[in-house]
Structure formats: C-alpha cells, structure tokens
C-alpha cells in the first residue's frame, strides 16, 4: 500500500470513528470535525514528529490545535499513537472520561487550551520564537478554522510571525467557509486568504483539503527556511462525507441521531 493509499484508508476509518464518537457524545461538533479529517491524518501520519511515551520531548514538532471544536476526531489517532488507552474512546463525553467534546490541555497530546477561538496562532508564534532561540529545528504546526480569522488577535499574530521571520511556523487553515450561523461570505467576508497572507509577507499555498496527496505535497513545499512563515489554505467542505451536513449553512450546530449514524456507517461498508 502506498503512503497515500494508507492515508486515504486512515481518513475513511477516522470518519467512521468520528461518527461513532458523535453517537456516544452528541454535543461534539461533527460537521466541523469532518472537514478537518484529512488535515489531521496528513499531519499525524506524514508530518508531525511526536513521541507519545514522552509528550513533552524537547525535539518533537509542536502541533497547536486552535480549532478546538473540530478536533475531537483526533482522539482515535492519539489513542493509536499511544497517548492514551484505546478503551478511553468508548467513554468519550462521559463523566469518567478525560475526552470532552472540546479537547483541553489535560489530554495527552494537546499542547494548549482550545475552545475559545483566535488564541492558537499567537501562542504558536511564542513557541516558534522559543524554538529558534533554543536552536531546535523542529516545526510548529497550527490548525485553525477559517472563521477564526474574524478575530482580531489572529491578525496581531500574523503581523508578528512575518516580522520575526518565523519560517518554522506552518499554519493550516481548514477553509470550510462556514461558521456557526452560516457561510462566511454572508456574514462578514468573502476571504481570499492567499492574497491577504502574501500581503503580510507569508508564503501561502492552496491545497485540496480532502486530497491527502495534494495536502501532503503542499505541506512538503512549506518546510523550507525562506525567512517567511508558511500557510497552507486547505479548501474543505464542512460536514464532508455526510450528505445531510455537507456545505449546509447551519451544519455547525447540527447533530446526527444514532439511527442516522447507523445508516451512514452501513452505507460506507
């Protein structure tokens, strides 16, 4: 099996796992996580160097997940890599579990606090600067949603990153174009991220956020030391894979009931 066939298979499996988790923890934001599946698969199985036995290993890559709501899909990945026991997945969302609907920094493998939007990029800038000062050549990856760029704090960080030439910083935007109450173009902006980032002196590239090969290759071109921070704009579909959710303006707050989930899982067999 080629690297990309493996990743494709992983993404398929993870979609199923995400739906299963949503079945037992209905408050999880399923549409938001389905758009980011391939992003996390490509990062964990092809980009991010980590060591689950020592989550704070100095020479790891740092992965900052700013898009908290849409990241519960990585629980199965973290379990498989060994951050915690796979049995923990069955308890997600329950009182007994460490795994909540929005992951927090107590969960092994999560570096920072998630949930409130617009924080991750600025914290990642501080980490990227620190790694440079410590002569650690590892990368700092950030996964952010497109809606997060409504927050002014993101633009404070965007200016900071290019001024300080943080070329060890790689931002991936899950550009699913929908926030809670609808399409971003109908709320506040029809954002062209490429132009904006280039004007702030970042190196920017677009990729198909559901094509693992395209995403992986885009990320590979961003691993250079050109003196500029990097951004991969991953064009995605909110709710990807589930017809009832795909690109629906209110998909962020839509939940699937258990029988719907069973139907979908049966279709995918």
């Amino acid at each position: 099996m080629s690297q990309f066939d493996f990743m494709k298979k992983k993404a398929q499996d993870l979609r199923k796992e995400a739906l299963k988790l949503h079945k037992i923890a209905s408050e999880t934001r399923i549409a938001s996580t389905l758009s980011a599946i391939e992003i996390f698969v490509v990062l964990y199985y092809g980009q991010v160097l980590s060591y689950s036995e020592n989550p704070t290993w100095e020479d790891r890559d740092r992965l900052i997940i700013s898009k908290g709501h849409g990241s519960f899909c990585i629980y199965p990945i973290l379990a498989e890599i060994g951050y915690f026991d796979e049995n923990e997945l069955q308890e997600a969302g329950s009182q007994k579990s460490i795994l909540g609907a929005i992951p927090d920094s107590l969960i092994p493998g999560f570096e920072t606090t998630n949930g409130s939007l617009g924080h991750g990029l600025g914290v990642a800038c501080g980490i990227a600067l620190a790694l440079k000062r410590k002569n650690i050549s590892q990368k700092v990856f950030v996964v952010a949603g497109d809606g997060e760029f409504n927050e002014g704090s993101m633009w404070e960080a965007i200016m900071f990153a290019s001024y300080h030439k943080l070329d060890n910083l790689i931002l991936i935007i899950d550009d699913n174009k929908i926030s809670m109450l609808g399409h971003q173009k109908d709320i506040i902006t029809n954002t062209s991220f490429t132009d904006k980032f280039e004007s702030f002196n970042w190196e920017a590239i677009k990729a198909d956020g559901h094509d693992v090969k395209d995403l992986h290759n885009a990320l590979m071109t961003m691993r250079n030391n050109c003196g500029k921070p990097h951004v991969v704009i991953a064009e995605t579909v909110k709710g990807k894979g589930v017809v009832a959710l795909e690109d629906k303006s209110l998909s962020h707050v839509m939940s699937l009931n258990p029988s719907e989930i069973d139907e979908i899982l049966k279709d995918w067999e």
């Binding site: 914290v123 990642a124 800038c125 501080g126 980490i127 620190a130």
Partner: peptide
C-alpha cells in the same frame, strides 16, 4: 499569547 508560547518552552 506570545508570552505563553515562550513560557511553555521554559523561558
């Protein structure tokens, strides 16, 4: 935020 990042790395 930048202060947090630096402090997470031990500064």
């Amino acid at each position: 935020n930048v202060s947090t990042g630096l402090a997470l790395e031990g500064f």
